[in-house]
Amino acid sequence: MNQAVLITREPVVNKQRAITANRLFVHAASVADAVEALNGLKDQWPSAHTVLLSLGRLVPTAELMSWEPPPNTMVEIPAPALRFEQTRALIPQLQAAGINLCLSWYQPGIEIPPGIDFRFVLADAGKLPQPAGLHGISIATGLADLPAFTPAVRNGYDGASGWFFLHGVPPAKELSASHAQIIRLLNLVRNEAETREIEAALKLDVALSYKLLRYINSPGFGLMVEVQSFRHAVTILGMEKLNKWLSLLLVSASKDPGAPALMQTAIARGRFMELVGAQFVDKRDVDNLFITGAFSLIHILLGTSIEAVLAEMNLPEAITDALLHGEGMYKPFLDLAIACERLDPSAMQEQIAKLRLNPDTVRQALVSSVSFADNLQFN
Rank of each mutant, 00 (worst) to 15 (best):
H167R: 12
E174F: 12
G162M: 07
L175I: 15
K173T: 14
T141F: 14
F164L: 03
A172G: 15
L166E: 13
R154D: 13
A152W: 01
F165E: 12
S161R: 11
G162E: 10
T141D: 15
T141L: 10
H179I: 05
P147S: 10
T150R: 09
A177Y: 08
S178G: 08
E174W: 09
V169C: 10
A180D: 14
G162R: 09
L143H: 10
D158P: 01
Y157F: 15
L175S: 14
A148F: 00
H179Y: 06
D158A: 12
G156W: 02
S161I: 01
G156T: 03
P151C: 03
P171E: 13
N155P: 00
V169A: 12
A172C: 10
G142L: 06
A144W: 06
L143D: 04
A172M: 13
D145F: 00
T150Y: 14
E174M: 11
L166Y: 08
P147N: 06
D158W: 01
A148K: 11
R154G: 02
A177H: 11
A152T: 05
S178W: 14
A177G: 03
S176M: 14
P170M: 10
G168I: 03
L143E: 04
S178E: 14
L143S: 05
G162W: 07
A160E: 06
P147R: 05
L175D: 13
A172H: 12
L146H: 01
F164H: 06
F165H: 12
L146I: 02
A152K: 01
L166W: 11
T150S: 10
V169H: 05
K173P: 09
A177D: 13
E174V: 12
A152V: 03
D145P: 00
A144Y: 08
T150M: 07
A148L: 01
A144L: 07
W163V: 00
H179E: 14
S176F: 08
A172N: 11
Y157Q: 05
G156I: 01
F165A: 12
K173I: 04
V153N: 06
G162F: 09
G142I: 05
T141C: 11
A148G: 11
K173M: 11
G156R: 02
A180P: 05
W163P: 01
G159Q: 04
F149Y: 07
P147Q: 08
A152D: 05
V169I: 04
L146K: 08
V153R: 12
T150K: 09
P147A: 09
K173Y: 13
P151R: 03
D158Y: 01
P170L: 06
H167F: 12
A144Q: 02
T150N: 07
G156F: 01
K173S: 15
R154F: 07
Y157K: 02
W163Q: 04
A152C: 02
L166N: 07
G168V: 03
